[in-house]
Design a protein around this nucleic acid. Structure first.
Lengths: 231, 231
DNA sequence: TTCATAGTTCGATTATAACCGAAGTTTCTA
DNA sequence: TAGAAACTTCGGTTATAATCGAACTATGAA
């Protein structure tokens, strides 16, 4: 009879909102300890411990013991992919007021996704980097080319420093609003920080972000991105 | 805060075993009425009704009213994709005895997936049809080419009759054992039936299937498939 | 050795939702 | 117009699991 894997078992692991919060945190920041995950999910350490055990048993997470700490990470790219697929079909958050609706628009144009750029701008930027030959798109990841090494050096992003960090240099992140991949990982974070430093982008209320006048000029000159494409 | 869609909401809808059984049934057979789905999930009609309402509200399913019947179908390819991704990361069904283990092997080589061919043989067959130019692989589906029309006619599969059926002619089905797509839908079913009729394959206990001696010869001559590839 | 920090295990409480019987609505058939 | 079939709604029961307090283990620091 049941000779197929039971997908509802995995769905059940993802269905609890506390576990979902922890998974979401781990999607971008690999290797968080239980206490940190408990905080992010707004639950006690005991409860978190129980949830994490279940997630490890279900092969959604891996643990690494380092002294008295336990660092959790997503067990496999497939897990991240599955979560992203679920996000794509999940209903968009409710819009109650007029303020909410303009916020919703802004957030689709450009926003931060944890610590990197997402939305139309995030996808456009990633595409531009690929077209210019600075990034190469793999099935599961983005890779920095030799030209890319030079470009990021010129752009004042220190790849070697980023590689030291305890996380992936690059990572594919499925954009739920654009249904395309954008760049995440340490490099995605590095680019975001650099764009803020340059004053090319500014924070709007919430997670939304707007391109400044300098940014408009800069993005066009370095990567050929026009803000018209953002609409 | 919550400006991202909540994937745990979708996961919750898929997490219940009764709902999962109904979704699984609908993955291959589009357009089943509530009563049929209740039977397949082994629950009462009342319970099924409640579940189906939730699945429609969550945009996982669509309903079409035809008189006093209500035909349910998967709302979007993305939903099927998401379920298949979950199946890929779900733990394989437990193997208890020696019998189970040889059965598990057989089932990975060739099996029926509802009403079409899956496993190594299913994937190989699909690949062969593509290589010969009979099938064209789209992002979301397989399409029959002009050469394909001729081939299936010669192979005694009536495409026009299959097109009359109330289901997709072709459909991509992600193979959880092979991690590749194989052909499903009315054509996938038509091929399975034809292969049984020709005596090229035979049922083993369970869902497993074996290639006969005639089948070995036939598959090689028509599509260049050797059983060595099946191992 | 002592204390603190990180995490686990146990037990009791509580909230959620799956389930079905019974009664209702809608549509088809005769 | 009556009756049956397909499905929904309501109400009460029950099972599951998320939650945290309290007590435990293990590692590190003083």
């Amino acid at each position: 009879m049941g000779s197929r894997p039971d997908f509802s078992y995995v769905a059940k692991l993802m269905a609890d909102s506390s576990r979902a919060a922890m998974l979401e945190a781990l999607l971008d920041l690999d290797g968080l300890p239980a206490s940190e995950l408990a905080k992010r999910a707004n639950i006690s350490l005991q409860t978190a411990s129980g949830h994490l055990t279940k997630l490890v048993e279900g092969n959604l997470l891996n643990v690494e013991k380092h002294g008295r700490h336990r660092y959790y990470r997503i067990a496999h790219v497939d897990v991240a992919q599955a979560i992203e697929m679920l996000t794509v079909i999940a209903p968009p958050p409710k819009i109650n007021s007029l303020k909410d609706s303009s916020r919703a628009k802004n957030i689709q144009i450009a926003r931060t996704c944890y610590d990197h750029l997402a939305g139309k701008l995030g996808v456009l930027l990633t595409k531009a980097l690929i077209e210019k030959g600075y990034l190469y798109e793999d099935e599961n990841n983005f890779l920095v080319t030799a030209e890319g090494e030079q470009f990021f050096y010129d752009f004042n992003i220190d790849l070697d420093a980023l590689r030291q960090k305890r996380r992936h240099l690059t990572r594919k992140c499925l954009d739920w609003s654009e249904r395309h991949y954008h760049l995440a990982g340490a490099l995605g974070n590095g680019i975001l920080i650099r764009l803020f430093d340059l004053g090319w982008i500014e924070r709007l209320p919430g997670r939304a972000v707007k391109v400044t006048d300098t940014g408009e000029k800069g993005l066009y000159e370095t990567l050929g991105i026009t803000t018209k494409e953002l609409i």
